[in-house]
Design a protein around this nucleic acid. Structure first.
Lengths: 198, 198
DNA sequence: CGGTCGTTTCAAAAACGAGTGAAATTGGTC
DNA sequence: GACCAATTTCACTCGTTTTTGAAACGACCG
């Protein structure tokens, strides 16, 4: 076995390191449950990130005591979401998994995913919550009734929500950039905002 | 009963309005489940927001078909988080609940709550995930060993996470301001960021 | 090809969290 | 201070989501 491709046993017998990693893995798993991410998914990602090297599925399974099924499904999802890379090594049938090490890229990846999966559809659904003046009013236009006050107020509230969500969406868009995230620029922008004078 | 204090029956017999409200309530409840907020909590808040008037607990219970217990617990939490105001009316033992109508204030309220409940403790916990050079190294200082490479790398990764979370925390701090949120300013800031040149 | 190793799928179990409703409590009233 | 209405609490139920583990699948190797 080549020296530069050490196994888990060879590299990770350092109790202080292991225990520090475990603290982060537990913490991250706990955070996950508060943010709608399955605990094992967060834990697996935390392990790959903090160890900063490639793992085979079996190493992950053993280290975190998760089932084969969970590891497989979770890794697939993490790869789909571009949080983890899968690599095939010649001469080894086992795939190796590793996590993006740039925390800013991680951040934008998550932001992008949530925007696409939640903000964009939300914006669309909100529009449907308006009381369309045409739809209902058309049938009773003959009465000469103006649109009821209550309808106008309702629509104003929806409109304000749309405006807020749309604005946040635009901020995300701006941060992500039109053709993929650019970490340095994003970081600079956020830093500027954080440090702006009170 | 005074005319200016109409009951649910008196004000809300407009099917178009009710159904539009219901659409929003369902949508918001659904969003809640994706963001770690109990469905009923999101629904109750949506109802109070979109109706834009005060409700008694019983009105909420009937309108949303939730149990007394859920209504009580949820309203308490919503009031704790300053998302909903409770008001006592003289001559009526029932409390009335209403939601903040300014969506920007809502946004800052949520931001503030999540920051306090999640970001701040997270930052604290992350620090504990470092391999403190003093703690472990002290016992084996005699060996003359420098701090292992693996420990330095580990701490660097943690440090980068702390930096990211800390920066987001600082942005939130900046947006919220030192003595409570100021909606107009916040809105202007976010608008500027959204519209900045690409 | 047949065997081996690794991955994926899926039905069932376990764990978790939300919701219920009756009982206890509170607070106001006569 | 006893009663009544409203609110809160909490042990339990119910539904969902997560996790498991075994079986099916697929790919690579000799």
């Amino acid at each position: 076995m080549p020296v530069h491709s050490p196994t888990s046993d060879a590299t990770e017998i350092d109790p202080a390191l292991i225990s520090a990693q475990d603290r982060l893995i537990s913490l991250w798993g706990e955070m996950g449950t508060h943010w709608g991410v399955p605990r094992s998914m967060a834990e697996i990602h935390a392990l790959l990130f903090i160890a900063g090297r490639e793992f085979t599925a079996d190493e992950i399974i053993e280290r975190l005591s998760v089932s084969r099924g969970t590891a497989s499904m979770t890794l697939r999802t993490l790869v789909e979401w571009s949080m983890v890379n899968r690599r095939h090594h010649r001469g080894d049938r086992r795939d190796r998994y590793s996590a993006e090490q740039d925390v800013w890229k991680l951040f934008t990846t998550v932001l992008r995913a949530r925007k696409r999966r939640e903000f964009d559809p939300l914006l669309e659904s909100l529009r449907v919550c308006r009381i369309d003046a045409d739809a209902g009013a058309a049938s009773e236009r003959g009465t000469g009734d103006a649109r009821p006050e209550s309808h106008r107020e309702h629509d104003q509230r929806i409109e304000r929500m749309i405006e807020l969500v749309g604005l946040l969406d635009a901020v995300a868009e701006r941060l992500l950039g039109p053709q993929g995230p650019r970490s340095e620029e994003l970081e600079a922008l956020v830093r500027a905002l954080a440090e702006a004078e009170q």
